[in-house]
């Protein structure tokens, strides 16, 4: 069954302290919603990573390859050591240019491309992190008519990332983890109701 959602893309960014939150969100995930989810977390490079497998225990997740079509009801994880972008023709594009905020993948890069590709049908979520990556990207998502949600800084293990986003984007809504879970579940409920 396909369930319409107000969003075609939910992009989630996080860094230090974001993994437990991600795991919790994914557990509550509205997988039956007809939209794509993309996760950008700062990761070490050039070391074997089990992150996609760890997160896959909660929900099936894939690391996209270049030119792979973006499908709905899938969860994608930005691969190590690449920036992840989306082309307007609905395919993934990878980029190996210099890191931004010392990070590749960078949340700003992905969020900016999500804003350009999805406009008002994009939802950006920023979690705990010890860098300012993601704030400028969230500003672009909101400027393009999309929605921004930020983990309540008080509940974040590292509050630099959520604080930077809230400072730059007054329109972004701070939420506790419970509220975020509730928001995503509501999304699913209202979508089911619309059916």
């Amino acid at each position: 069954m396909q369930i319409p959602s107000p969003y075609d893309m939910i992009a989630i960014g996080g860094s230090a302290g974001s993994l437990p939150v991600l795991a919790e969100l994914l557990e509550q995930l509205p997988v039956s919603i007809d939209c794509t989810m993309m996760i950008i977390v700062h990761r070490l490079k050039n070391v074997p990573s089990d992150l996609d497998r760890l997160l896959s225990l909660k929900a099936p997740i894939t690391e996209p390859e270049d030119k792979q079509p973006v499908l709905s009801r899938r969860i994608y994880l930005a691969p190590q050591n690449y920036h992840l972008l989306i082309e307007t023709d609905g395919t993934f594009a990878l980029d190996y240019s210099e890191p931004l905020h010392y990070s590749r993948p960078s949340i700003d890069v992905s969020f900016a491309s999500v804003a350009a590709a999805y406009g008002p049908r994009a939802l950006g979520i920023l979690l705990s992190g010890a860098s300012k990556d993601g704030a400028a990207g969230m500003q672009q998502i909101i400027a393009a008519g999309g929605t921004g949600i930020v983990q309540d800084p008080a509940s974040a293990l590292f509050d630099t990332m959520p604080l930077a986003a809230l400072e730059l984007c007054p329109e972004a809504q701070p939420m506790s983890i419970t509220d975020m879970v509730h928001f995503l579940t509501e999304l699913k409920m209202s979508a089911e109701h619309d059916q």
Binding site: H83, E87, T88, A93, D95, S97, V109, A116
Partner: peptide
């Protein structure tokens, strides 16, 4: 050239 990253390079 792939559009999204080319655009980003010009922008930068």
């Amino acid at each position: 050239y792939a559009r999204s990253s080319l655009k980003r390079r010009f922008q930068r």
